[in-house]
Computed example of a mutant assay.
Amino acid sequence: MTGPILVTGATGNVGGGAARSLLAAGLPVRVAGTNLEGLRERFPGAETVRLDFFDAQTFDAAVAGTSGLFLVRPPAISRVGPTLNALLDAAARYSRVHVVFVSVAGADTNRIVPHHRVEQHLRACGLAWTILRPGFFAQNLADAYADDIRTQDRIYLPAGRGKVAFVDTRDIGDAAAVIFAAPDVHRGAAYTLTGPEAVDFDTVAGLLTGTLGRIIRYQPATIAGYLRHLRRQRLPIAQCLVQTVLHTGLRRGQAERVDPALARLLGRAPRTLAQYVSDHRTSWPPR
């Protein structure tokens, strides 16, 4: 690839993991966001460019001259037409890029999640593409679930007894580096990415308990109770609904299947949840 790979969401877990993996692989990287100083400090080996999904005037300069686009949907964005899909249209006008879009497991058939509309648009806009459909991130433990773990010593979700094959976003970044190193090999492919084993949330709580040295419990939530819990955190209603739908689906086994695609892409076994918890043990200081 000649031009840089534009990475969106570089300040987050998925985009940040991709930027680091791409740089480690020796690939040219352009990280995009609204805080350019912060991006320069975090990724000194990368170009930086202003990109605001709510300001279409930033799109053309962000994609100009790029040879790849690593696209992540910010959780707060539910209207993907004027944001992510418009960025794809800009890329189709100004660059010959290969797009790696980070979707979500099941988005090809689940019309409720915004990722479905991005996938449909990506297939139709004329760009080369690869779709990654990861399951639940191990990093959710230090992100979406972190406050409950730190302040309440609990995991509070409407997942019932469902199991999850948690995937580490560091492995997603490594997979992106493999794809961008040989994009033609992966053109038009869609990969479901999971970790190497499925565990229930009692097991997750046990891992945290053993690592942190204090008791962490799993408390199953009702759907209504979880929605109220998210709204108290002042999250946008669309984000609350998507998050609730995804976690409720765990009751029906929607995230328990272990897929071999990630191991094949990486040429090694994906990281386990136990590895993630051990590596990030300082992420959950006691209240």
Score class of each variant (00 low, 15 high):
residue 1 M to E: 07
residue 5 I to H: 08
residue 6 L to A: 10
residue 6 L to C: 06
residue 8 T to H: 06
residue 10 A to H: 01
residue 12 G to N: 10
residue 16 G to A: 06
residue 17 G to Y: 00
residue 17 G to D: 02
residue 19 A to V: 02
residue 20 R to P: 01
residue 20 R to C: 01
residue 21 S to Y: 00
residue 24 A to K: 07
residue 25 A to D: 02
residue 25 A to K: 04
residue 29 V to F: 08
residue 29 V to G: 00
residue 30 R to S: 05
residue 31 V to R: 04
residue 32 A to P: 02
residue 35 N to H: 03
residue 36 L to R: 07
residue 38 G to V: 06
residue 39 L to Q: 04
residue 43 F to P: 00
residue 44 P to M: 06
residue 48 T to I: 08
residue 50 R to Y: 06
residue 50 R to C: 06
residue 51 L to Q: 06
residue 52 D to Y: 11
residue 55 D to K: 01
residue 57 Q to N: 12
residue 61 A to I: 00
residue 61 A to T: 03
residue 62 A to N: 13
residue 64 A to F: 04
residue 68 G to N: 04
residue 72 V to M: 02
residue 75 P to G: 06
residue 78 S to V: 04
residue 80 V to H: 14
residue 81 G to H: 10
residue 82 P to C: 00
residue 83 T to Q: 09
residue 86 A to I: 04
residue 98 H to Q: 08
residue 101 F to G: 03
residue 103 S to K: 06
residue 104 V to C: 00
residue 105 A to P: 02
residue 105 A to L: 07
residue 105 A to I: 01
residue 107 A to V: 04
residue 108 D to H: 05
residue 111 R to P: 02
residue 113 V to I: 03
residue 113 V to P: 11
residue 115 H to M: 03
residue 115 H to I: 00
residue 117 R to H: 04
residue 121 H to I: 01
residue 121 H to P: 08
residue 132 L to R: 04
residue 136 F to K: 09
residue 139 Q to N: 08
residue 143 D to A: 07
residue 145 Y to G: 11
residue 146 A to K: 13
residue 146 A to M: 07
residue 147 D to S: 14
residue 148 D to A: 13
residue 148 D to F: 01
residue 149 I to T: 09
residue 150 R to D: 11
residue 151 T to I: 05
residue 151 T to Q: 15
residue 157 L to A: 13
residue 158 P to W: 14
residue 159 A to S: 14
residue 162 G to L: 10
residue 163 K to Q: 06
residue 164 V to H: 12
residue 165 A to C: 14
residue 166 F to S: 11
residue 170 R to E: 14
residue 170 R to M: 12
residue 171 D to F: 03
residue 172 I to M: 10
residue 172 I to W: 08
residue 178 V to A: 08
residue 178 V to G: 00
residue 179 I to H: 03
residue 180 F to K: 07
residue 181 A to P: 02
residue 182 A to Y: 11
residue 185 V to F: 13
residue 186 H to P: 12
residue 186 H to S: 13
residue 188 G to M: 01
residue 191 Y to P: 03
residue 197 E to C: 10
residue 197 E to H: 13
residue 198 A to Y: 12
residue 199 V to K: 11
residue 200 D to T: 14
residue 201 F to N: 09
residue 201 F to A: 05
residue 206 G to N: 14
residue 207 L to N: 14
residue 209 T to W: 11
residue 209 T to Q: 09
residue 210 G to H: 02
residue 214 R to V: 07
residue 214 R to K: 12
residue 215 I to G: 13
residue 218 Y to I: 08
residue 223 I to E: 09
residue 226 Y to R: 08
residue 226 Y to K: 05
residue 226 Y to T: 02
residue 226 Y to C: 10
residue 228 R to W: 11
residue 228 R to H: 11
residue 230 L to W: 03
residue 231 R to M: 08
residue 231 R to V: 03
residue 232 R to Y: 09
residue 233 Q to C: 05
residue 244 T to P: 15
residue 244 T to A: 13
residue 244 T to L: 09
residue 246 L to Q: 12
residue 246 L to R: 05
residue 247 H to P: 00
residue 248 T to I: 03
residue 251 R to P: 14
residue 251 R to W: 04
residue 254 Q to N: 02
residue 260 P to T: 05
residue 262 L to N: 07
residue 267 G to V: 11
residue 271 R to S: 05
residue 276 Y to S: 07
residue 276 Y to E: 04
residue 277 V to T: 07
residue 278 S to K: 15
residue 280 H to T: 14
residue 281 R to D: 12
residue 281 R to Y: 11
residue 282 T to M: 12
residue 285 P to C: 13
residue 285 P to W: 12
